[in-house]
Design a protein around this nucleic acid. Sequence first.
DNA 1: GCCAACGTTGGC
DNA 2: GCCAACGTTGGC
Length: 149
Amino acid sequence: MSLLFCIYILLIMNYWLVKSEPDVYGWDTFVAEGGTFWSGVRNYQARNNLRNMQVGDLVLYYHSVKNPAVVGIAQVTRTAYQDPTTEDTQWVVVDLAPLKPLKKAITLAQIKTTDALQQMALLRQSRLSVMPVTPDEMATILALADENM
DNA sequence: GCCAACGTTGGC
DNA sequence: GCCAACGTTGGC
């Protein structure tokens, strides 16, 4: 890949966060399966976020309810298409594949006490299950997790 | 288990 | 269009 192309990819890349309960579909299961179609979203805002995902976008994988924390990074491998788990054509899924676990999981408690993360949708819209993450927020989380990507 | 937040449904 | 009732999510 040319340098210009790499720069272009970085500029158009978007960052996201998806929630899953570890007892329902945790990171380890996700890794064991090598990825999945992200089904079951039945909320318009979350659906719209799924529709805006592009192949290659990085997705923070968040465990909700039990030990709430960002635990890994996934990558979008296919853009939105009809959710195969319903006949209703208004719902979509994307394909996600695991990229890597975070060296250090970033707990919700930690996010709440980090100044640079106070504006995260995770804190402001607690019930949203698929949400955008800004490049600054992404960089902050990766730094906290000792990741240099 | 409790409760706050909030999206949806349905009566008017 | 408003709002009460209700169901779900998710933190604690």
